[in-house]
Nucleic acid binder design. Structure first.
Lengths: 338, 338
DNA sequence: AGCCATGATGTTAACGTACTCAAATACTTT
DNA sequence: AAAGTATTTGAGTACGTTAACATCATGGCT
C-alpha cells in the first residue's frame, strides 16, 4: 500500500480497466482488439471504463506478446536528396494503408557498412526495413539480411539476397536518346552530375550504351554539381561546340542553367539546340516551365519499397529487382529536325 | 521437446546466449548494456556467444521493462510542404544525437482532431510527439496533451498547454517592410499565398501591421497558389500599378514569376520595381539566383521541436512559445531610393 | 586469522499484453 | 426434459527484458 503510493504514476493498463468495469483483463483485451465474442452490454461497460480512465493500449506489452511491431524501419542516407521526399511520402501512405508506422533513423557515418545499419535498425520496433545508402557499402555484396526481416534496398545495384527498388536511372537515358534520335539528332552531348553520384553514373552509362547501340558519336561528358549555376557554366563551354544539336542534362536544374547560358550567347532553344532534363523538378519554380524532361514515379518508388518490405517477411519470398521506369514529359525544348 | 520443434523459429534471446556462454541471463543483460561490473573473461565469452548466435536485443522486452522507447512520434500533415523536409532533417539529426529514433505516421484526414492524432501516436512506441496540422484543428484550444508525454505543435498559433515551435511567419514581414521603408519605399504591395494557408495569413498580417505602424498605405493584396506561374499572372496585373515601387511576395517561386512578368512588360527589377520573396528556395534552381529574400533556419525548427519533445517529459516543464526568426538575405532585387 | 569492503554473479519478480484452454451460461434441437 | 451446441467469460501462462536483492568469492586491513 505504502509502496504503491511511493511509485511514480503508472499509465492505465488493461488490469485497471478490468477492475473498473468488473470484468477480467482478458475481456478488456477482447474489447480493445474489437473481437466479436463479447456481449454488447459488457463491451459498452468496458468501453466506458476505458474512456473514464483514459486507457491506451501499451505498445511494448502488445508487441512482446504478439511478436509484431506494425512498423517498418527506414534509413535514408540523405533526406534532402531529390526524390527522397516524394519517396517518403509514398512509403508513409502505403504504411498508413496497412496500419503501419515508419520508424526512421538518420545515418551520418559514410563508412558504415550495410550490416551495421541493418543491426541498428533491427534493435528498433520494426518488422522490416528499407535502406538507402549514398555510396556503395563496403559489404554490399556479402551482406545477408536478418532472417524473417523483409529487407529492401533503394539501390541501382542488384543484390543477391535483398530486393532492390529504384527509379530506372539507366533506362531513362535510353528513352531520351531514342527520342532525340527519332527527332533527327545525331550529336547528343551529356551533362553529368558529380562523379560520386550513382544516379548520374547510371544515367551516363545509359546514354553511352544507347548512343553506341544507335551508332551515334559519344563525346566527352561535362560534369556539374546538380545546381543551376553549374549548368550555366557548362552551357557557356558547350556553346563552342557547333556540331551538337542536343544536350541531355542529368537533371533539370542544370538544364535550366544551360538554357540560360545558351540564350545569353544568342543560341536559341530549341531552334538551334535542343535540351532535355531529368526529374521534372522545375515545375512550380520556373514560370511557364516548358523543359522536356523525364519524370519518375517517386510515390511508386516508395510504395513499392514498402510493399516488398512487408512481403519479405514471408518464408517463401524471393528477392526481386524492381526498376521503376521514367516517363518522358514532352514540352518545348526539343526541335524535330526532320 | 516435441512441442519445441513444432513452434516456429523464435529469435535469439538473452536466455539462449546465457545457455551458450554458461552464465545467467542477467549477466548477458549486463554485457548487452555495457555495465562495468562484469569480469573481462566473462564479458568476452558472452560477446562471443552473442556474435555466434546473432543475438539482437528485443525492443519490446526492453521497453516493457524500462517504460522507455527512445523514440519520438511525428505526424506531419504534409511532408511535401516547403520547409517540412529540412525540418525533418533537423528532427532526425537531433534524434540521432540523443540516441533516439523517429516514429512517423501519415495524417490524411482533414477533419481529424488534435486529440485523435495524439491518441494514434500514443499507441506507438514513443516518449514524446511532434504534430503539425495544416488547418486549425477543431479542438485546438481545448486539447490537453497526455500527461508525461512531451507534446510539441508545429504551429503559429499559441497553445495553452503545449509548446509550439514555428518559423516566425509574422515577424519576417516586419523585417521586410522595415528594410524596404529604410530604402525609401512607401508603396509596398503584398502577394499572398492561398487563403487557407496559415503561413500566408501570418505573413500578410505582419505586412499590414508593419505598414500601419510606419504610416504606409495598405493596398489590397493579390493571392496566388505559391507557384511561379501564378506569380507571373499576378505580375501582369500588378504592372498596371504605377504607384508601387516594391512588391513583397509571400514566397520565392511567385516572386520569380512576378519578376519574369514585369521584365516581359519592360519593367526593370530593381531599377523600376523592387521585389522581395520568402523561403530562399530558388537557390540551385535558378541560375544566378539574386532574389532578396527571407531565409528561415528550418534545421533549427526541427531540432528545437525535438528538444522540447524530450524536455516536455519532465514534471516541472512549462510549455513555451518558440518563434524562430528569419534572416533577410540581401541580394540584387531591391533598389535604394535614397 | 578474522573482519569488512569490494566485485562478480545468480535468483526472483515484475512490466502489459494476447494466446490457450477451461468453465459457465444461454440457446437449440430432438 | 434431456442432450447437445454456440456464445461469453475467466484463469493461467509466456513473451524478453531489467531492477532489486541475495549470494559467493576475493583481497586488504587490523
Amino acid at each position: 500500500m505504502a509502496r504503491q503510493s511511493l511509485e511514480k504514476k503508472r499509465p492505465i493498463s488493461m488490469a485497471d480497466v478490468a477492475r473498473e468495469a468488473g470484468v477480467s483483463q482478458q475481456t478488456v483485451s477482447r474489447v480493445a482488439n474489437g473481437l466479436s465474442n463479447v456481449n454488447e452490454d459488457t463491451r459498452l461497460r468496458v468501453q466506458a471504463a476505458m474512456a473514464k480512465l483514459g486507457f491506451r493500449p501499451n505498445f511494448a506489452g502488445r508487441s512482446l506478446r504478439s511478436g509484431q511491431y506494425n512498423s517498418v524501419g527506414l534509413c535514408l542516407y540523405d533526406v534532402r536528396e531529390f526524390g527522397n521526399l516524394a519517396t517518403l511520402d509514398g512509403i508513409l501512405s502505403a504504411a498508413r494503408e496497412h496500419g503501419y508506422a515508419i520508424t526512421m533513423i538518420e545515418n551520418v557515418d559514410d563508412n558504415l557498412s550495410l550490416k551495421d545499419v541493418s543491426h541498428k535498425i533491427t534493435e528498433l520496433p520494426v518488422d522490416g526495413m528499407i535502406i538507402s545508402m549514398s555510396l556503395m557499402a563496403s559489404d554490399f555484396d556479402s551482406f545477408k539480411p536478418q532472417p524473417g526481416m523483409g529487407t529492401v534496398l533503394l539501390s541501382m545495384y542488384e543484390h543477391p539476397y535483398c530486393t532492390t527498388v529504384e527509379s530506372d536511372q539507366y533506362g531513362c537515358s535510353w528513352t531520351v536518346v531514342e527520342y532525340l534520335k527519332n527527332a533527327g539528332h545525331r550529336n547528343i552531348r551529356f551533362v553529368a552530375g558529380p562523379s560520386y553520384s550513382i544516379d548520374s553514373n547510371f544515367r551516363q552509362k545509359g546514354w553511352e550504351d544507347a548512343l553506341s547501340h544507335f551508332g551515334l558519336p559519344v563525346a566527352q561528358p561535362l560534369a556539374g554539381n546538380w545546381l543551376a549555376d553549374s549548368g550555366y557554366e557548362i552551357g557557356c563551354k558547350l556553346s563552342a561546340d557547333t556540331e551538337m544539336t542536343a544536350i541531355y542534362s542529368a537533371n533539370d536544374q542544370m538544364a535550366f542553367g544551360i538554357i540560360a547560358a545558351l540564350q545569353d550567347r544568342g543560341i536559341r532553344v530549341p531552334e538551334d539546340v535542343s535540351v532535355v532534363g531529368v526529374d521534372d523538378s522545375l515545375e512550380g519554380y520556373v514560370p511557364h516551365c516548358n523543359l522536356t524532361t523525364i519524370r519518375f514515379d517517386l510515390l511508386k518508388r516508395g510504395r513499392t519499397a514498402f510493399e516488398h518490405a512487408l512481403l519479405g517477411r514471408k518464408p517463401g519470398y524471393t528477392p526481386e529487382t524492381v526498376r521503376i521506369p521514367g516517363r518522358l514529359i514532352v514540352r518545348d525544348t526539343v526541335r524535330n529536325l526532320h
